[in-house]
Every structure is written in C-alpha cells, then in structure tokens.
Amino acid sequence: MIKRIFAIPLVAVLAATGIVAGMGSLQSNAETSDGGALKSVSDFEAIADTSARSKAIFEEASRVMTHPRCINCHPATRSPTQGEDMHPHVPLMNASESSLGPAGLVCSTCHGAENRPVVGSRMKSIPGNSHWSLAPASMAWQGLTVGEICRQVKDTSRNGNRSLADLIRHMGEDHLVGWAWHPGEGRSAPPGSQETFAALIDAWVSTGAECPD
C-alpha cells in the first residue's frame, strides 16, 4: 500500500480564500474520491494474516476518514478547511475553546441543524448538522499518514477517551459522522455508507485494531 500523506500547504495569506487556494498548489487527496466503491468486510477475507487484514481494513476505512467531508473538520490547525479542494474556510474560522467558534462567529451563525439549500448561487447549500463543530485539536488528521491517523484514533488520550467499542458505536451511529453521506447539494459524499464504514471499523477492531505503518 502506498503511504498517503494529506498535506495542506499553508497557503499565502492566512485566510486565503477559495479562489486563491484554487490557484495555489493544494495537494489534492484524489485517492479518496477516485477509489471506487467502499469495499465491504468480506472483500478482505482473502487476507489470511489477521494483522495484515486489520491494517488493510483500516486503510479502506480511512478512505472515508480522509474524505473532505470528514477531514475538513479535522484540520491541522484550529481552523477548518472546506470544499473538495480543502481550502481554508471562508471566512477564517477559529475553533476557540468550545470547538464551536468564538461567540459572535459560532458555527451555528451559518450552519444549521440541517443542510440549508440556497438559491441563485454556485453554492447549492450550506451544510449543517445539529452537532456541527470542529474536531478537538487532539484529533487533527490533516497532515497525518493513515498510520498516524489510526494510532490517533486508538489512543484514548487523544480520541476523547473512547474505547474500541465506543469507536465502533461512534462511527456507526454518530449523527455528525453520518452527515458525511448526506452532505447537501453541491458536495460529494465519501464512498460507501455509514453502515459499511461502521462494519469496517467493527472488523478492524475484531482483527486486533492493527494500524498501517
């Protein structure tokens, strides 16, 4: 497997906006969107070695986690990215201590409990979810390799003190995680569905939750 690195060069002026980012040389994470359908757990049965199977399953699951719908809110800094090209969020957003944005410019200033359609614009909707927020700093994924993401996800000191069982539940039932597959008009969804994704996480855990190198 190729080691995937999701590097976001800090573009120019801090709040470089869509067009600037577009003109810049953001490395795209094309693999996440071009990799076809999300494989199911059974697709990995041929891998006899449990550890290798576990790693392969996580690799597959990471296609979801590193999709822009997910990783845009797991940024390297405390400011989200946005769009398929993962450009810095416009306007510049700071998570603040709450991860909900500073009072006066909170996430919910623009993002509602559901996606909000807009008319007359290239932007077809404003994404939304009742738990819309930035992932905690400890869960920054941008800039990490898949292996590093994996080790972060397992590390209770960095994953919100979640057990492996909690992880399965979180990935499979969390409403905000589930939003990724219903991102609103104008946005791509990660491959698969929340169910297939959760099943992969489940299988990864039951195969020993091994992390790719």
Partner: peptide, 15 residues
C-alpha cells in the same frame, strides 16, 4: 465565472 464572495473574495478584517 466568479459570482460571490467565496470565489471573488475581498479583504476581511483579519487580513
């Protein structure tokens, strides 16, 4: 091509 402040940005206070 451009149409709004997302793709035709203008200076904001933080800049």
């Amino acid at each position: 091509v451009e149409g709004n402040f997302d793709d035709s940005p203008v200076l904001r206070i933080n800049e």
